[in-house]
Design a protein around this nucleic acid. Structure first.
Lengths: 238, 238
DNA sequence: CCAGCTTTGTGAACGTGTGCACGATTGCAT
DNA sequence: ATGCAATCGTGCACACGTTCACAAAGCTGG
């Protein structure tokens, strides 16, 4: 029996890329590809080959020099490392626009994250069925989490209710939260939180667009106009 | 007239945080807060005060020692740096589950990213109105982009159509893309792409949950079972 | 068995990001 | 005026992440 390899800590940056490799490898497996080189995987994943090799080396040295990696085995190892050997049921808080889209989007269940429940504060919404799951009242949250052994909660509420939703989730026993509301949640340190904020993403794109535009302007005109310069001047103190 | 400060390059990590500061500062402004210290802003933003000061210093030195930052002025400077002094119309490709939720979600327009159009390949969807915008056929994409001066495209198509959507957007003249499909897009280097992938986010959470579970297991039992050890052994070659 | 080709795994250099610590500056009280 | 408390701005050291470059290891054909 081989010695149990001490579980290395995998860098966050690598953890964030493993899902991408996993998806690509799964696709390759579907196309009956048996082995793949770091070069090819890098190309498909839009990253550098050395990075691929270093990332995969954190899982253990599963490649074969001169050949590459066995696709099926790599898929297995990544799934194991990411904890995808079993399903992780999730509970969605908020059955508004976004919550409904998330529940209706089948991809969750397919990828190992079945929707164990969806709850809302609004009694009028309770009862209707969404993506095969009945909307229940938020007071039943704890019961759902306990009964279905839910570890991951998704916050899809309006901004104002997000902190309350987070607190309810934590009280119910959830230990990881995916937050779609544009607020910084205050939760115990032990809770893992990830945030998806569309406005932030768009604003980052906006920054780059604006830079592009500024660079063009500077190239075509000699200097800033008087008005533009005045606009960047600090206003007088009150 | 003060000399035009040479436009510094702002680190990506800082660019990603500026939208968060901006939201917090806007909220503070609404509550009639006139000045704010880096300490307070750090607390509200869930980051370190030194980081706040360093981030803000890239905009220029707009704080006052012993006092803090003028909220209104900081809001103005961040908006300017992020290019939020004017609207950036966006076009959404894909009027499925997600595309509809995005169009219906009013937050886009409010935050300076009005939906200039939604397109889909499915003629059956064309014509219906979504969040005040009529769904049009994807062949009209170029026309919309040109007419409304759209720089940012949002891909909300199924996975299989995402690359095609990206190519159409680029051909139409879009220079930034926000991609919700779980694929690595192949586009010219000059195009700025950001990806939002729910499965990746959930898998990262899964990794941490799995680690938690493993740590607990190692604490309660002495070693791995024979079966578990066998499962991690490399299969024999074909 | 050897030569030559391919590809991994990783040490080392480099670049980016974070956080501390402290001087510099400001406002206020006396 | 002077002293003191508050707070910014930033140099520096450290941590983290990326990329290069090359030895090690395997495969193939003769």
């Amino acid at each position: 029996m081989p010695a149990e390899r001490p579980r290395r800590r995998i860098p966050e940056a690598t953890v964030a890329r493993l899902p991408v490799y996993l998806r690509i490898l799964s696709e390759q497996a579907d196309e009956a590809v048996e082995t793949i080189s770091s070069d090819r995987l890098a190309e498909l994943g839009g990253v550098n080959a050395a990075k691929v090799r270093k990332d995969l080396s954190y899982l253990g040295s599963y490649g074969t020099r001169g050949v590459g990696y066995e696709v099926a085995y790599l898929v297995y190892q990544i799934r194991r490392e990411l904890g995808l050997t079993h399903d992780w049921p999730v509970v969605i808080v908020g059955a508004g626009n976004l919550g409904q889209a998330l529940a209706g989007y089948g991809g969750f269940g397919e990828r190992g994250f079945p929707v164990a429940g969806i709850v809302d504060v609004d009694p009028a919404k309770v009862g209707s069925v969404l993506g095969g799951v009945r909307i229940r009242h938020i007071d039943e949250l704890t019961q759902i989490v306990q009964a279905k052994q839910v570890n991951i909660g998704v916050i899809a509420t309006p901004t104002a209710s997000a902190q309350d939703a987070a607190e309810r989730l934590v009280r119910a026993g959830v230990t990881s939260i995916l937050n779609f509301a544009p607020v910084v949640l205050s939760v115990p340190r032990s809770i893992e939180v990830r945030k998806v904020d569309l406005a932030v993403e768009l604003q980052i794109l906006s920054y780059h667009e604006q830079r592009r535009a500024t660079a063009n302007t500077l190239r075509s005109v000699s200097g800033g106009s008087g008005a533009a310069a005045a606009a960047t001047t600090r206003p007088a103190r009150a």
